[in-house]
Amino acid sequence: QVALSRTQVCGILREELFQGDAFHQSDTHIFIIMGASGDLAKKKIYPTIWWLFRDGLLPENTFIVGYARSRLTVADIRKQSEPFFKATPEEKLKLEDFFARNSYVAGQYDDAASYQRLNSHMNALHLGSQANRLFYLALPPTVYEAVTKNIHESCMSQIGWNRIIVEKPFGRDLQSSDRLSNHISSLFREDQIYRIDHYLGKEMVQNLMVLRFANRIFGPIWNRDNIACVILTFKEPFGTEGRGGYFDEFGIIRDVMQNHLLQMLCLVAMEKPASTNSDDVRDEKVKVLKCISEVQANNVVLGQYVGNPDGEGEATKGYLDDPTVPRGSTTATFAAVVLYVENERWDGVPFILRCGKALNERKAEVRLQFHDVAGDIFHQQCKRNELVIRVQPNEAVYTKMMTKKPGMFFNPEESELDLTYGNRYKNVKLPDAYERLILDVFCGSQMHFVRSDELREAWRIFTPLLHQIELEKPKPIPYIYGSRGPTEADELMKRVGFQYEGTYKWVNPHKL
């Protein structure tokens, strides 16, 4: 086992960053958080920038500027975001240094004079007029057009580079997404736009490419001749908990499936790229999406959770019991969808996408189930092999396979070949997804960000279904809070070829 401390991990990262040409360590950078008073800024962006600063992973002359409508001070920003920093008493001095680099400007999102004030403020910072500028839009999409237009007109660096990070949702359907994309691309070049999907920053999602293309053993079996089906799962054990009003506007397909799960599907299904260059990788992902037809209604199961009468606390409440959810809402909190990649490698292999709230566990994984062994000599005792990439929690890679049961006879039983990170790298604290992705933006690497043509294809696949749901308002199937979801989803999976045995229990190697 390799035991690495946080300091050692960050030392390795620093070495990698400083050796590259793309990370300008000594240049002045300004990180501007648009929507600095909001939840995302408070819980994710400010803490992430602090962790990067604490670990010495930001360029040395980096300033952080918050911008929002609320009249706040840096002290206010500190008060609301610091509880999420997880700072230790030993880091007190470092924390003071961090907040000394912070400033805040209040202004409207659609007022040109406010942006001119913001620009004057940035120019007044040390070497601010020639600094590289990175704008993070932690804002609702309704203000994107006004904000990007004003940034472009008043706040661009004339000497350094300018980059803009856009948070999902990128529209509600193909038409609104196209409108937003066309607007942003009329102001910024594609190499300046970073559409963030934080799932692409997760260690195991990034590991998929290495697993596939750096190991000879997987190449020959990664196709329709050997793989019976692919299941991509995202499960949350909690409901909307008072935030249903926002969720109800989008629903589970827009929230998770059309982005996170579809991105994971691309990494499983794509061909080997010409290189690890950002556009070479994204070219292959677009090719996969172009091979997927629009979702067919007979390959869809929609569910909505109801309270568990035997549960406790939140578990007793259904989705419609959330006071922020519109009365009688038919918005799905669970969806199972089957897609097919219609190309030579994957023809006929079902890709089953499942996601839901208020389920029995927290889990995100990719599961490849292989065909049955031909010419069975073990009297149907063999179960199908599976390769599982567990994204969260407890990152893991393992192969479910058959071995001989101890004893006199040739009785096979299920076991696993474990390729888990935790076994080799004991207690290594890896940077989280937002840390990686923000560092990628500083480096100018777009590999783990969504390109406009990729986004367009993703919406093309799901828009007809979303429009049909909005028009017909089908009643989702009720499922109990804390269950596996509607049984109809299991029946759909069985119908397209997935075999669920229920006889195997994964042993978490992190707890051995």
Rank of each mutant, 00 (worst) to 15 (best):
R327P: 15
K290H: 14
V301S: 04
H467L: 10
V366D: 02
N411H: 05
W459R: 12
E491M: 11
D418V: 05
V441D: 00
Q296W: 07
R460C: 02
F351D: 01
L471Q: 09
G407P: 05
A297D: 12
I352V: 06
N385D: 14
F449W: 15
A315K: 08
N394G: 10
L437N: 15
A315Y: 10
L262S: 05
E342S: 12
F409S: 12
A433Y: 13
T333S: 07
E361D: 12
L466F: 12
Y481S: 08
Q381M: 13
E312A: 08
G502T: 12
T276L: 09
A458Y: 14
K290D: 03
A297G: 11
L419K: 03
N427R: 15
V295A: 14
P273I: 00
Y434T: 15
K357T: 10
N298K: 12
V256K: 08
V325A: 06
E488R: 06
R362T: 11
E361V: 12
E395A: 07
Y504T: 13
N360W: 00
P464W: 03
H448P: 13
C443F: 05
Y434F: 15
G303A: 06
A335E: 02
G311T: 10
P393Y: 01
L289Y: 04
D310C: 10
D279C: 08
K505M: 12
G356F: 00
T324C: 13
E435Q: 11
A396K: 13
L465H: 04
E294S: 10
K473L: 08
P474Q: 09
H448I: 12
D322E: 03
V338S: 07
G502D: 15
L262Y: 00
I480Q: 11
R354F: 07
V341H: 01
D490F: 14
H371D: 07
Y425T: 15
D280H: 07
K505H: 10
F409M: 15
W506R: 14
P478K: 09
G328C: 12
M264L: 15
A358I: 02
T463W: 07
V373H: 12
S483Y: 04
Q296V: 12
V507I: 07
H448N: 10
V306K: 06
G375Y: 10
M264A: 10
M447Y: 13
Q304A: 04
N299Y: 07
V338P: 06
N423R: 05
M401W: 15
E414T: 14
R282D: 03
R367F: 04
A364P: 01
A315P: 10
G485Q: 05
Y398T: 12
Y398N: 10
D322N: 12
G356T: 01
L466N: 13
F370G: 00
L261F: 05
D432C: 15
N343K: 03
R456V: 08
V496H: 11
T487V: 13
D418L: 07
G444H: 04
P464Q: 08
M401Q: 06
V373F: 14
P406K: 09
D321A: 09
K426C: 14
K357S: 05
E314N: 11
Y479E: 00
P350L: 01
V428Q: 11
F334N: 00
C291T: 10
E386F: 01
Q446R: 05
M257V: 12
T420Q: 09
E312I: 05
A269M: 01
V295N: 03
H510F: 11
K426Q: 15
Y319Q: 00
E501F: 05
E284Q: 07
V337Y: 01
N360S: 14
N385F: 03
G407K: 03
G318L: 00
E413K: 09
V441E: 00
Q381D: 10
Y398A: 14
A269F: 00
H467F: 09
Q381C: 13
D280I: 08
I438W: 04
T330R: 09
L466D: 04
R424V: 12
R282F: 01
L289G: 00
E491G: 07
Q296I: 05
N360F: 01
V268T: 08
A315G: 15
E457P: 02
L302K: 01
T330D: 09
V391M: 15
Q446Y: 06
F498Q: 15
V337L: 10
P309T: 10
V325F: 03
G482Q: 05
L419P: 04
D372I: 03
E501A: 05
N343S: 11
P350I: 02
P476S: 07
L417H: 14
A315L: 11
T420G: 15
A364M: 07
P464V: 06
D432A: 12
Q380F: 10
D280W: 05
S293G: 07
Q258P: 03
W459C: 11
L492K: 03
Q258C: 15
E435T: 10
L265K: 01
D322T: 12
V300Q: 03
R436N: 10
F351E: 02
Q369Y: 09
N508M: 14
D321L: 11
K287E: 10
L339R: 00
P406L: 15
L265D: 01
R456F: 04
M401C: 11
A374N: 07
L261K: 01
Q258A: 13
Y305C: 02
E472F: 07
C355I: 04
K363E: 15
V366F: 07
V337T: 12
I352C: 03
Q392V: 12
A458F: 15
A374Q: 13
L262T: 09
E395M: 03
L353K: 01
K272N: 10
L262F: 05
C443H: 07
K404I: 15
F442I: 11
P478V: 05
S415W: 08
R484M: 10
F498R: 15
V428M: 13
T333I: 01
F442Y: 09
I438S: 00
E312P: 15
E395I: 08
E365A: 04
E386N: 07
T276A: 10
N277P: 03
F351R: 02
K357R: 15
E284W: 02
G318N: 07
Q446P: 05
I292Q: 02
P509Y: 12
V300C: 11
C355R: 04
V295K: 02
T276E: 04
A315T: 07
L353F: 07
M270E: 01
K494N: 14
L419F: 14
R345Y: 08
A274C: 06
L320I: 12
V295T: 05
C443W: 09
V256A: 15
R436L: 11
Y340I: 03
A433C: 15
L359K: 01
A364R: 11
Y434K: 10
P476G: 02
D310F: 14
D283A: 04
Q381W: 11
A358S: 07
G307Y: 03
L492V: 07
S329N: 03
A269V: 04
P323A: 12
Y421E: 15
T331L: 02
V281P: 02
Q468H: 07
L439A: 08
K363C: 13
A274I: 04
R354E: 13
A433K: 15
T331M: 06
E472G: 15
H379Y: 11
T420N: 04
R390T: 15
M401A: 09
I352R: 02
H379W: 05
P273A: 04
K473W: 07
A489C: 12
K363R: 05
N508Q: 12
G502M: 11
A335D: 02
R282G: 03
I469C: 07
A374H: 13
V507E: 14
V341S: 00
